[in-house]
């Protein structure tokens, strides 16, 4: 080397310092999520100490503005669960079919056209979907009761079904693109081996490719669940916002209220009274959302890690 020992040390020091600075900045970016947990939990805890978790999780009496206020959020949890479950039930089969089609059936050229379509579906802002639900889907839904068989009455076009429909469409792009990647990752050899044994395309896909990529498909579904559960604007605008458990519980044609919509709708009133129980209860809801999304994330990572280990193991 032509460098003197001093210059070399200086260079190494600079390199170390640079690495330290980069590490610091990266940590700030990554640890933001820790700050989120901390600050949401900090503002959620006073609610649990003041009012208690029992009423929050078990009661359905949600009257935050009454005197004395009641903070029973069971119906709101049920609403979130119902809307998310319905959206996922709609989106998963459709999304998996579309992904199978994209990865194994369609010719390359068509796929190149469809990719932007899916990206556009993902790019449309959620408030526009909500606006669409309100101005186009809800009136249709309102009138649907009269011409659908069975003659059931739909009291309002904004109900759990409208919200679930739109949520399903919003979750679709995530499900399609992640599961398409998973299907692609299963590899060519596997498929060709199956075809060589005389299997049709459907058999190859369902008996070979899907089982081989099942962990990826599962994480696609998890991401779809997270997307549907965390969505705010569409459910706020299209679900009707009535804090009640539908009767019977699977009746999607009744209005419901979700956690996200409650946070968005009530915080506007509550930000004037930072520190009140009403303010803290919304953070408690946020904390619950956060914890569920963490659980989904961990489950997804665990599945992917297990799959990787299995592949490495042979």
């Amino acid at each position: 080397m032509l460098l003197s020992p001093g210059a070399r040390t200086r260079r190494r020091l600079a390199e170390l310092a640079g690495r330290g600075v980069l590490f610091g900045i990266t940590s700030v970016a990554a640890l933001a999520v820790m700050a989120i947990i901390f600050f949401i939990a900090r503002d959620a805890l006073p609610f649990f100490t003041q009012v208690g978790a029992r009423e929050f999780f078990l009661s359905t009496e949600w009257y935050p503005a009454h005197q004395p206020p009641r903070f029973g959020a069971a119906a709101i949890f049920a609403g979130s669960l119902l809307v998310t479950a319905a959206a996922v039930l709609l989106a998963v089969p459709l999304g998996l079919f579309a992904a199978l089609c994209m990865s194994d059936v369609l010719p390359f050229g068509v796929r190149q056209i469809l990719k932007p379509v899916i990206e556009m579906l993902a790019a449309i802002p959620s408030v526009v979907y909500g606006f669409f639900a309100l101005t186009v889907v809800a009136p249709l839904m309102q009138n649907a009761g009269s011409w659908l068989p069975g003659q059931f009455e739909i009291a309002s076009g904004v109900n759990a079904l409208t919200a679930s429909l739109i949520l399903a469409v919003m979750a679709l792009p995530t499900i399609v693109s992640v599961s398409e990647d998973a299907l692609q990752a299963a590899g060519r050899e596997l498929r060709e081996g199956s075809y060589a044994l005389g299997a049709t395309r459907a058999e190859t896909l369902f008996k070979v490719v899907v089982p081989a990529s099942v962990s990826g498909l599962f994480s696609a579904v998890l991401l779809g669940v997270m997307r549907a559960m965390g969505e705010t604007m569409v459910v706020w605008m299209a679900s009707g916002n009535a804090a009640q458990i539908p009767r019977p519980w699977y009746n999607l044609l009744q209005p419901v209220r979700t956690l996200t919509a409650t946070i968005a709708g009530d915080m506007g009133e509550a930000d004037q009274m930072t520190g009140s129980a009403h303010y803290h209860v919304l953070f408690a809801m946020g904390l619950c959302l956060l914890l569920v999304s963490f659980a989904c994330n961990l489950a997804g990572e665990w599945i992917v890690a297990r799959q990787r280990k299995r592949l490495r193991g042979g």
């Binding site: 999520v33 989120i36 949401i40 930000d271 994330n297």
Partner: peptide
Amino acid sequence: LRSCVNTLAGVPSVVFGLFGLA
């Protein structure tokens, strides 16, 4: 750190709003 970044991507948008306020 990687896991943190992935988790950040999954946080619901309305929770970001709460965090921004708090």
